[in-house]
Design a protein around this nucleic acid. Structure first.
Length: 274
DNA sequence: CGCGCTCCCTGGCCGC
DNA sequence: TGCGGCCAGGGAGCGC
């Protein structure tokens, strides 16, 4: 599901509802998500006040007043959204957070590829097992043509696979990689090392553009994704190639092609992307 | 170490 | 309607 724009949108929605609020009640209904929840998960969170909610790569980072951090990942089908207090729990509602002002935040995840963890006070976020080694934020100033070039140099994989590698750049997923490569006119099958240089200079702004446009649209809702207020995103209407097999390329009208690379679908225009 | 593949899990859709 | 097969936005872990 959720790639960077969707996680960013959820984080912004959660920030409004959670920052400065005390967690009056935490309920872990299902304790085995992708990984088991840490010991005493609810107990360690209950009574804490949320300092900030922010995003790193595709992770939701919720910092608490005691310096601990609640880390959450939505996997493929995870959602985090506000629901009416006292509502009937729905299927796959795994964790609930109720704030002191009566807001209920639900973590729902059908496929349970999502996860949550707690980082104890005094431990650096970037030292966490899952965050260690993550590449730069694509929307940050530090992500530039030369930085991407350096990360791609010597890589023997297709550029599609390299951009999905969170160590190269953190936050892209299957949709936005196809979209960014289309916008930059680069074939997803091109060797990553051969993108270093002028093509990387062209690709970086297109990555930033597509992510920024999607965030402005509230992300993309294909199946499970909703914003923190439960609303759908609508950037799926802005896809140029993703999910558009056989439909005309927006630039040249030749049919969009679909191939499988490292086990996942890639969409591209064989004519516009050299 | 780098790379490619499999698998974790559930649900929706398509074809029969 | 029902059932089997296939596919899905992520990424850890394994074998080579």
């Amino acid at each position: 599901m959720p790639e960077l724009p969707e996680v960013e949108t959820v984080c912004r929605g959660l920030a409004v509802r959670l920052e400065g609020r005390r967690l009056a009640r935490v309920l872990a209904r299902r304790k085995n998500l992708r990984f088991p929840l840490p010991k005493d998960f609810a107990g360690r969170l209950t009574g804490r006040t949320v300092r900030t909610v922010r995003r790193r790569a595709k992770y939701i980072v919720i910092e608490l007043d005691d310096g601990a951090v609640l880390l959450a990942h939505l996997g493929m089908s995870g959602r985090m959204y506000a629901a009416p207090l006292g509502r009937e729990a729905e299927k796959h509602d795994h964790v609930e957070f109720e704030t002191d002002d009566g807001t209920l935040i639900v973590f729902n995840d059908a496929r349970r590829f999502g996860m949550m963890d707690l980082i104890a006070p005094g431990h650096a976020l970037e030292d966490h097992k899952l965050l260690r080694g993550l590449g730069p934020e694509p929307l940050g100033n530090e992500f530039s043509g030369p930085v991407l070039s350096a990360a791609l140099a010597g890589k023997k994989t297709p550029i599609k696979a390299a951009l999905l590698d969170q160590r190269v750049v953190a936050g892209l997923g299957n949709i936005y990689v196809s979209e960014a490569l289309f916008r930059a006119g680069i074939s997803p099958r091109r060797l990553a090392a051969s993108v270093a240089g002028a093509r990387a200079e062209r690709l970086v702004p297109e990555i930033k553009n597509v992510l920024t446009e999607s965030i402005a649209a509230g992300g993309s809702s294909l199946r499970d994704y909703v914003q923190a207020d439960g609303e759908l995103g609508f950037f799926q209407d802005g896809f140029r190639v993703y999910g558009r097999k056989g439909l005309p390329c927006p630039a040249c009208a030749r049919p969009v092609r679909q191939i499988v690379q490292s086990g996942r679908s890639t969409f591209f225009c064989g004519h516009c992307q050299g």
